[in-house]
């Protein structure tokens, strides 16, 4: 059914007399004022604040992001401290912003050891658009979007994260790993 907006331009005399409508508006704003005024008091006393007040006291109070949230991409680090990445370069190709730089290193014939790993793995967060393509492209479950979005710096050069800064233990990423497995399984890769 089509919905018609009531574009009534003529005001009733009640609306034209200003004062009742103004008082209505002031009633709304002052109700909001007192509601928030008393709602925030428990927070300042150090107890749990009234959860009906949605405003988050940001740096002091943080919300838990849902697992689907795409924060900065990080590298998964196996339990033995070695990166899970095999330096295949697929993420580098998939990245629409060209912000990943990989220089591979490889095993020179030792048995029972990792064969390939990245010697250099840089992501420039100043360029990254948090699209998640790298995560999707990776065949080794080695790069994941974390829930960290607080990456503001005073200098652009500091936004270039190296391998050491990117490595995050697999244990911390478990939720996201589960999530990506579910998600990409649906698409039948």
């Amino acid at each position: 059914m089509a919905y018609y907006v009531n574009r009534r331009s003529e005001m009733t005399w009640w609306e034209k007399s200003y004062i009742p409508e103004i008082i209505k508006g002031m009633w709304l704003t002052s109700r909001r004022f007192f509601y928030n005024l008393f709602g925030f008091i428990p927070f300042f006393l150090g107890t749990e604040k009234d959860r009906r007040i949605m405003t988050v006291y940001y740096p002091e109070e943080q919300v838990q992001y849902p697992v689907a949230y795409r924060g900065r991409p990080v590298l998964a680090q196996n339990e033995d401290g070695h990166p899970a990445c095999v330096a295949c370069g697929l993420c580098e190709i998939a990245c629409p912003a060209y912000c990943i730089h990989i220089e591979p290193g490889q095993n020179t014939g030792k048995q029972n050891q990792y064969e390939r790993w990245p010697d250099v793995f840089n992501i420039d967060y100043a360029i990254c658009i948090f699209c998640g393509n790298c995560e999707e492209a990776c065949p080794e479950e080695a790069i994941f979007m974390s829930d960290d979005c607080e990456i503001s710096m005073l200098d652009r050069k500091q936004m270039l994260y190296t391998k050491e800064q990117l490595l995050t233990p697999v244990a911390d990423l478990q939720k996201r790993i589960e999530f990506t497995r579910n998600m990409y399984a649906k698409w039948n890769y």
Binding site: T29, S30, R32, F33, N36, L37, F40, I53, M54, T55
Partner: peptide, 10 residues
Amino acid sequence: KQSALMQDRI
């Protein structure tokens, strides 16, 4: 502060 409280800000 008052305007903030009225507009659900801090």
